[in-house]
Design a protein around this nucleic acid. Structure first.
Lengths: 161, 161
DNA sequence: GCCCATTTGTTCGTATGTATA
DNA sequence: TTATACATACGAACAAATGGG
């Protein structure tokens, strides 16, 4: 039971199915009971995973009916890159980081490095979106320069490797 | 029992306390047990409310310690935040992550955990600024409301249960 | 119109793991 | 070691909405 929490793994799996097209837009997800059977976890875990995807804006639920796929991340990115996407990606990023902070065993270092790699890709993607967002607002993106400005309480060195 | 769900009412109350300054930045929220006593609800409701505030970026939890107030919407508004700040912070974030991926020695696990902690705070700060950016563009930050827009709006007033 | 099964959403109580002090 | 606290997880119950007899 090491690694990310179960509900995050279920959410990841469902999200990947949405991205891959295995769960098309408009399609209902399997019911909570079905997902409990399939993933062999409790209803709590499935509910938490669904809630997470709802917070990300990928799916929406209709009481009495089902939970439906709203969009795919790729679709929304191609269609209209905006603050919403940044917000969603940032939300995912925080979940990843909070998951990272839980690990500590030396035997998990490899897995941790793997997740940090993923984290780095995510941050890069975020920056790409921000650049695009700049373009849409008419302002030029301040490449490289303008780093290390005031803000006072910035983190102590620690980086720069 | 009427009106909004209990966990949303608890979240609303805590949020208003943060905005009003009754819960200053950096201050720990009462523990889950205390909140259970005060609001006379179950731990599930309190946990859901905390989770909601965490998703909104207003608070962050530290296992074994407490849940702390990260910021208030008003405070971040005074800071004059724009896309440039987001870009700069994102750039720094990328630097931190790329530095992290280089580490691998088991003896550095402690230090690595420390930096991941820092990383988590940075991501939270990013989200706070993004929330403010939303406010200044006039749009509301998409927490988890504004669903139901698919079915042709049911229940707009939220008070019918 | 009324019952009934299914499904989402909410709430309860409890247990366990992990982090902090 | 002990105690407190957050985070995750399990199981159960109920309300509300939906749709089919």
């Amino acid at each position: 039971m090491i690694g990310r929490p179960a509900y995050q793994r279920v959410a990841d799996d469902l999200r990947s199915q949405i991205v891959s097209g295995a769960l098309p837009v408009g399609q209902p997800l399997p019911s909570t009971a079905r997902l409990v059977e399939h993933y062999e976890v409790s209803t709590t875990v499935v509910r938490a995973a669904i809630k997470k995807l709802q917070n990300e804006g990928l799916v929406y639920g209709q009481p009495g009916k089902a939970v439906y796929v709203r969009t795919t991340p790729d679709q929304s990115r191609d269609a209209r890159i905006g603050l919403e996407d940044l917000a969603r990606d940032l939300s995912e990023l925080r979940d990843e980081v909070s998951g990272l902070s839980g690990q500590r065993s030396p035997s998990d270092v490899d897995e941790l490095r793997e997740e940090v790699d993923e984290l780095r890709r995510t941050v890069g993607l975020l920056q790409t979106r921000l650049i695009d967002l700049y373009a849409r607002t008419g302002q030029p993106y301040p490449h490289d320069e303008a780093r290390r400005t005031e803000t006072g309480e910035r983190r102590r060195a620690s980086g720069d490797r």
